[in-house]
Computed example of a mutant assay.
Amino acid sequence: MPVSTVHAPKALVTPPPEPLVPVRYVDIGGRGPEDVVTDARGRVLTGVEDGRILRLDGLTDPGPRGPRVELLADTGGRPLGLEPLPDGTLLVCDAVRGLLNVDLTDGRVRVLADSVAGERLRFASNAVALPDGSVHFTVSSRRHPLEHWIGDLVEHTGTGRLLRLAPGAREPEVLLEGLQFANGLAASADGSFLVVAETGAHRLTRYRLTGPGAGRAEPFAADLPGLPDNLWRRGSGGPVWAALAGPRVPALDLLHHAAPAAVRRGAARAARRVPFRPTGMVGLLALDDTGTVLHHLTRRHSRFRMVTSVCETDGHLVLGSLWEHGVAVCAAPPPK
Rank of each mutant, 00 (worst) to 15 (best):
L285P: 02
T279M: 09
A201G: 04
D106P: 04
A129Y: 07
W232R: 14
R43D: 10
V3L: 01
H301F: 01
H316M: 14
P33Q: 15
D106H: 12
T46H: 07
G158F: 07
L80G: 01
N230D: 09
R122W: 01
R55P: 05
P219Q: 08
F304I: 12
D289Y: 10
L146W: 06
A197T: 08
V282D: 04
R208T: 15
A270W: 05
S302V: 03
T75K: 06
R299Y: 00
R143H: 07
D57L: 07
R65K: 11
D27C: 01
R248L: 10
L204E: 06
G213V: 11
N183D: 15
L104V: 12
A197E: 02
A201D: 07
G326Q: 04
A251T: 12
K336I: 08
L255W: 01
L153Q: 03
V48G: 02
P239I: 04
E198L: 05
S302E: 04
L185A: 00
L100P: 05
L45A: 10
R108E: 14
L255T: 05
G151Y: 03
W323T: 11
S188M: 09
F181Y: 10
P16H: 12
A271D: 09
S192W: 00
V23C: 09
G184E: 05
D132F: 02
I28C: 00
E198G: 04
H148M: 12
L209V: 04
R78N: 11
L20S: 05
F276G: 07
